[in-house]
C-alpha cells in the first residue's frame, strides 16, 4: 500500500515550500536553505530556483550563522531542517546572531514533538516549544492542518520577522473548513464553543483532542476546543477572555510539561490574575526509548485520546 496515496492529507512541508516558491519567483531576495532535509516540493524548488536555494550541509550551526550574514545583507532567509537539529542543535547560534539582532529569519522545523516516532529520543523534540519560546522577540507558530499551514506561511512570507514555524511530519486531517483565516490575527482559534470546560491544544494533537470531544459528547460533556497555533506571542487579552468563559481548562501537548504550551497558558493566566482549575496533559520526566508508532507513544506517555477523556472527567468531577 502506498503511503502517499491520493487521499493522504498534503504534507505541511510541501504547502510551505510551494508557497515560498511562489514568492521566490517574484522576490529574488528570498533564499531557502536546507540542512539536508528534503521534500517533493523542494525538488521542484531546487530545479526552478537554483540561485535561491543553498544546501548548508549537515551543519546547522553554520547554516544559522550564514543566515545572519545574508539577512544583514537584505536577504529574506528560510532555514529548513528536522526539528531537533534546527532548534537545540544550533540554539546558541539562533540566540546570538538571529535573536540578538532581531533578524527576519524563519526557522522551519519538520517533525516536531514525537513526529519521528521510530527514530526515538535523538529525533524527538519534547522541548522545542519551551526552548524556542524562551528566545527574545521570536514568534512561534504551530499549524494543525493543511489550511492553517497555508494561511500561516502566507503571513510569514508577507511580514518578514524572526519566526519559528513548527511543522508536523505527517499530513494532518482537515480541521478547518475554509474558516481559519480570520483567526490569524487573534493568534488562536476557538474552534468549538462548549460548556463548562475547554481543551487547549495545538499541532498534531488537535485531531486527537477533537476525537476525544466526540466521545465526551456521548458521555454528555460538551467541551470547548481551542487551537493555540501561535504559542508566542500569546494573545493574553483575548485568550484570557475566552478561557474565562469556562469553569475549568485542560491543556494537551506533545511536549514535556516543563516550559511547554501548557506552561505558556498558566503563565498568561497568572499575569492576568485569573485563578481557575487547570490541568496540563503532556510528557513527564523519565520517558525512555521504546519502539512504537506515534499512537503507541501517546498511549505510553499519557497523551492519548483516552488520557484526554480521563482528564476531562477528573476536571468535571471536581
Amino acid at each position: 500500500m502506498s503511503v502517499t496515496n491520493e487521499s493522504s492529507p498534503q504534507l505541511m512541508r510541501d504547502i510551505v515550500i510551494n508557497s515560498i516558491a511562489k514568492a521566490a519567483k517574484k522576490d529574488k531576495n528570498i533564499l531557502f536553505i536546507s540542512a539536508d532535509l528534503g521534500a517533493k516540493s523542494l525538488d521542484d524548488f531546487r530545479r526552478d530556483f537554483p540561485n535561491q536555494f543553498i544546501h548548508a550541509g549537515i551543519s546547522e550551526q553554520n547554516m544559522v550563522d550564514l543566515a545572519s550574514g545574508l539577512a544583514l545583507s537584505g536577504k529574506r532567509v528560510f532555514l529548513y531542517a528536522m526539528a531537533p537539529f534546527i532548534t537545540a542543535r544550533c540554539y546558541e547560534q539562533i540566540k546570538c546572531v538571529i535573536a540578538s539582532m532581531g533578524l527576519p529569519v524563519t526557522l522551519i522545523s519538520v517533525g516536531v514533538g514525537l513526529g519521528y516516532d521510530h527514530a526515538t529520543l535523538t529525533h524527538f523534540t519534547p522541548e522545542d516549544i519551551a526552548c524556542m519560546r524562551a528566545l527574545n522577540g521570536i514568534e512561534v507558530l504551530t499549524p494543525s492542518d493543511a489550511e492553517s499551514t497555508e494561511v500561516i506561511i502566507e503571513k510569514a512570507i508577507a511580514e518578514p520577522k524572526f519566526r519559528y514555524l513548527r511543522l508536523d511530519r505527517q499530513g494532518q486531517l482537515p480541521i478547518y473548513n475554509g474558516n481559519f483565516r480570520p483567526n490569524m490575527k487573534v493568534g488562536f482559534s476557538h474552534i468549538i464553543k462548549g460548556k463548562q470546560l475547554v481543551i487547549v491544544s495545538c499541532g498534531a494533537l488537535m485531531n486527537k483532542v477533537l476525537a476525544a470531544r466526540e466521545k465526551l459528547m456521548f458521555e454528555g460533556m460538551d467541551v470547548g476546543i481551542i487551537d493555540l497555533f501561535r504559542v508566542k506571542p500569546i494573545n493574553g487579552r483575548e485568550l484570557s477572555k475566552a478561557l474565562n468563559s469556562y469553569n475549568a481548562i485542560l491543556t494537551v501537548e506533545e511536549q514535556l510539561l516543563d516550559g511547554g504550551m501548557g506552561s505558556a497558558i498558566t503563565e498568561m493566566l497568572a499575569d492576568y490574575m485569573i485563578l481557575k482549575p487547570i490541568k496540563r496533559l503532556g510528557m513527564r520526566d523519565g520517558f525512555s526509548v521504546v519502539n512504537g508508532d506515534r499512537d503507541q507513544l501517546h498511549d505510553l506517555y499519557g497523551i492519548a485520546v483516552s488520557d484526554v477523556i480521563k482528564a476531562v472527567n477528573e476536571l468535571y468531577q471536581r
Binding site: 550551526q61 553554520n62 550564514l66 550574514g69
Partner: peptide, 10 residues
C-alpha cells in the same frame, strides 16, 4: 566565518 560567508554569498 558563517556570518562572513553570508555577506560573501549576498
Amino acid at each position: 566565518i558563517g556570518m562572513g560567508a553570508g555577506f560573501a554569498i549576498a
